[in-house]
Every structure is written in structure tokens, then in C-alpha cells.
Amino acid sequence: MSMTIGDAPAPHRRMTLGAREIAAGLIWLVLLFVPLWLPALGGYTDLATRVLIYGMAATGLNLLLGHTGGLSFGHAAYFGLGTYGTGLFLIHVMPSLPLAILSGTLLGGIAAILVGPLVMKRKGIYFSMITIAFGQMFYFVAVRWNSLTGGEDGLTGFSRVPLHLGSRAIPLGPTGFYYLVFGLFALVMLIVWQILRSPLGHGFVAARENATRLRFLGVAVDRQIWAAFAISGFIVGLAGALDSLLVSFASPANLQWQLSGEFVVMCVLGGMRSFWGPLLGALIFIGAQDYLSSVTQNWMTFIGLIFVLSVLFFPNGLLGFIKGRARA
């Protein structure tokens, strides 16, 4: 009897692991060939690129929100700083695409590093409110600094430049830019996956579940929250850098708390504690936004309805619901 009980979980674990690997492989294949099959469904490549960019930003936020337990309504600030950092580099420094993306990522990430110590000791609603305050501070700086940022009109005068690989210049049309974003998205997902499997990632989850017990064990919980906040800021900053290249524009609206709320909605829709949940949430949100905005001016009402129904009927997100049904 004891052998039967003891032996049963091992093949079950192997089957579960195999199913996850197959599902992940299918997701990557679908993403890899998006430019081939999406136009046949009436879509366009830039829409898929936008889904990956916002999925990346939501994944960055989810590292803090879903895995560490910190609800931030100020992460749009790091997204917006990424857009401005990239645009300003292309305008005032040099037309180098990799360096422009790097500059936007660093600007967003360094800002998160600096803000982190000021928010990491707060909990609950106080944590959320102070992140909003810092986010709005960056927004008002961008609006008021007309000579540098363009003020309320935003930053223009830059565009995607060819990607130089040695002596070869590769122009980035919609398909080429999609694959650039896809490659960076894959890199971010790999980094997040490695972090979540590491002792640091387990520390994030432990801080979410019981920070008091961790403190009694002598763990520096505040530093772990700071680390999650900083890593999250770098990922969101990278997403902002790519977004500025997608639309050739940096808007102060990218720094506002409303966009932070959209990132939160994406995480909740897909599943906050799921690895692929933020990408699924971004797909639902961006897809619904693109379609509904073409048929009605009140599209935000329908987005809100989708969010409310998701919270009521899928409290663990759509991916959490699917996993629950699969176990059943």
C-alpha cells in the first residue's frame, strides 16, 4: 500500500512537466510565426508587436504584483521614462538602435532603483499610493519640461533607424521590428523564469505569503521587495523603449497612473500568479481595445465590463481558471 502511494506521484509529475513543456513550445511556435498567420485572420503585425510590448510590461509588473505582493500604480512612470530615454537618445546623441533601447531601459530601471528604497517599507494601500505619487511626479516633470520633452505635445522628431550588424544595415519594417521585439521578449521571459526558479524568486514568493515570518528568520524582506521593484522597473523600461520605436512618439500619457492601471488589469485578466498570465491578459486587453475602439467611442466601458466579469468569475485569472479545469 505504501509503495503504491509513494510511487504514484513521480509519473504524475513527469506527465505534468511534459504537458507544460509542450504548452510552452506551442506558445513559442505561435508567437514565432505570427507575421505569417495573423494577416490571414484580418490582423496586422504591429498589433502583435504591441501585444508583446505590453505583455512584457505586464510581466515586469507581475514580478512585483503577482509574485512579491506589491500593488504598484506607478509603473507607467518607468514605461514612460523608457519611451523618453529612447527618443531623446536618437534625437540628441546618435542614431543607434541598440544604444537607444539600452538608454531607455537604463533610464526606467535606474529610476526604479532610486524610488525603491522610498516605497519598500510601505505596505498595502500606502505602498500603492506612494507609487502613484512618484509616477505622477515624473509625469508633471515631462509635461513642464517643454524644451526637452515637448511638454503636453509629447516628444517627436525621431523614428526607427536600421539595425546595424557590422557593415550591414537591416531596415526594420513591421515584420523585422516584430522579430526584434520577439527576441527581446523571449530574453525577458527567460530571465524572469530563471529568477522565479532561483532562491531570490522563492524569496519574492515567501515575502508575499508571510513577510513577518521571514523577518523573524532574519531575512531582509525590504531588500527583496526593493530587488523585485528594481528588476520590474528595468523590464517595464525596456517595454517603454520598444513602444516608442513602434509609434515613433513619446507621450506624457505613458507616464500617467491610468496606464499603470491598465498593466494591473492585464495581470489580473490573465492570472497574476501565472508565468504566461500577463501575456494572455495583454492579448485580451489589446485585442479588445483594438476591436472595440473601431466600433464604438465607449470602448472603455466594455473593457471595464470584461474586467469586472473576470474578477467575479475568474478570480485567479483566465489562465488560473484553465489550469483549475485541467486539474479537475
Rank of each mutant, 00 (worst) to 15 (best):
G281R: 09
L71P: 01
P35R: 04
P117N: 04
V265T: 13
E152D: 15
W28Q: 08
I322M: 13
H67S: 14
L81M: 06
S251F: 08
A24I: 07
Q297G: 09
G233C: 05
G150T: 10
T16S: 08
R14C: 08
I284T: 03
L187G: 11
N146L: 15
G42W: 12
L81V: 10
G320V: 12
L32E: 04
F73M: 13
R122E: 08
A48L: 12
S198G: 13
A230F: 00
G82Q: 07
A241F: 06
D46Q: 12
G176L: 07
T131F: 10
P162D: 08
L47V: 13
L102P: 10
S293N: 02
T49H: 05
L309E: 04
F185V: 12
M3N: 06
R122L: 09
V264E: 02
R213G: 10
V295S: 00
G203T: 15
S147Y: 04
Q256I: 11
F234R: 04
K323Q: 05
L71T: 09
I225S: 02
Q194F: 12
L190P: 05
L280N: 04
I53F: 03
A326I: 15
G237M: 09
V265W: 02
A186E: 03
L279F: 15
N146D: 11
R197W: 12
W145K: 02
E21V: 06
L246F: 11
N254T: 14
V51W: 01
P39Y: 15
